[in-house]
């Protein structure tokens, strides 16, 4: 995909976001205020957002570039990390910080490690760190700072 195309799609999403917020802002009530209420700034700012994003979109269309989208940025790599993060956050409470983080750390390290470093020794190191780091972090915060992280299954 050419950079122009990707840029225009992104700029269009910003316009849509602005439009959504502008429409949502029209439904905000003034609230218990004597002068301008809590609706004033959201209406004003979402309106400005919409106007600037439209100008930005039009400017982007006018500006032609033959540059290609950064080829090194793979959509699959981005999505796999994003999905991993979403799954991590979903299981954080039910499984608990220690267990969820063990899984997250190992998979995340596995996903981003360069191919030349994919050796049994590296995986062994990942396993040790994935088990040790969450336990150490949880222990330090619980015992030194009295901050209890989600316990989940280990409750």
């Amino acid at each position: 995909m050419k950079k122009d195309m990707a840029n225009n799609i992104f700029n269009f999403i910003l316009v849509m976001l602005g439009a959504t917020l502008f429409i949502a802002a029209q439904g905000i009530e003034t609230g218990a205020a004597m002068a301008q209420g809590g609706d004033f700034m959201p209406k004003l700012l979402s309106g400005i957002w919409l106007v600037i994003s439209i100008l930005n979109f039009l400017y982007g269309i006018k500006l032609k570039s033959e540059e290609k989208v950064d080829a090194s940025a793979k959509l699959s790599g981005f999505l796999s990390t994003l999905i991993l993060l979403v799954v991590y956050l979903i299981i954080l409470r039910p499984l608990g910080f220690v267990l969820a983080s063990m899984g997250y750390l190992f998979v995340q390290m596995y996903l981003i490690v360069p191919s030349e470093k994919k050796t049994k020794r590296t995986y062994g190191l990942f396993a040790v760190l994935s088990i040790g780091v969450p336990i150490a972090v949880s222990w330090i915060f619980a015992n030194v700072f009295s901050l209890i992280l989600p316990m989940g299954l280990l409750r």
Partner: peptide
């Protein structure tokens, strides 16, 4: 503008209106 708009999410400090 996006930064200011994101800071406006939630209940207004003055008036208590629910925003976004």
């Amino acid at each position: 503008v996006m930064g200011i708009t994101f800071s406006l999410f939630g209940i207004a400090a003055i008036g208590g209106a629910r925003r976004f």
